[in-house]
């Protein structure tokens, strides 16, 4: 499933600083739930990892050593990162949760990787072992509305994955 263009379009005008602030809150929440997320990176923990959705005009660069996440508008120039992975946002999120197999997505050409392959492989394995569940992990940010937010997020994920990742898993 590609992210609908009509929903992606506003991301061209919303200030990047605002998007980065929101993304950082979500990132910190995931790190709080999974403090050992980057242990498997070992010697690669100091590197920078770019996640480049092909269907939204943004690039997310994760620096595990801090840990922090930066957001930038997508440009033709390669991002300032040691390793990059490109693919539809749904698949990148599914990879983050270990709900699809990165090798299978590579074989099917849905995913493109470049840069430091050793570092990217370590990141793939770190994510795969971490049992991240975004609806569960992020819903706590909604306070008393957490159960509702979690259910809605799970429903969205279910629909997105049934169309795409469901082909493999």
């Amino acid at each position: 499933m590609r992210f609908p263009a009509t929903l992606a379009a506003p991301l061209n005008v919303i200030p990047v600083a605002a998007i980065e602030r929101a993304t950082s809150i979500l990132f910190r929440r995931v790190m709080k739930e999974h403090p050992h997320l980057f242990v498997r990176l070992g010697e690669h923990v100091g590197k920078r990892f770019a996640f480049m959705p092909t269907d939204i005009p943004l690039v997310f660069v994760v620096s595990p050593a801090q840990p922090s996440i930066c957001v930038a508008r997508r440009t033709p120039a390669p991002p300032d990162a040691d390793a990059c992975v490109e693919g539809p946002i749904v698949m990148l999120l599914a990879l983050l949760e270990g709900r699809c197999d990165a090798d299978a997505l590579f074989f099917s050409r849905d995913l493109t990787v470049s840069g430091d392959m050793e570092a990217m492989l370590a990141m793939r394995n770190a994510l795969d072992d971490c049992d991240i569940d975004l609806p569960r992990d992020l819903s706590a940010l909604a306070g008393p509305l957490a159960p509702i937010v979690s259910r809605v997020a799970e429903s969205i994920r279910q629909r997105a994955l049934t169309g795409e990742v469901g082909r493999w898993n």
């Binding site: 270990g98 709900r99 699809c100 197999d101 795969d128 493999w168 898993n169």
Partner: peptide, 9 residues
Amino acid sequence: QRGKAYVAE
């Protein structure tokens, strides 16, 4: 070397 989704499936 494959992911947990592959193993499960």
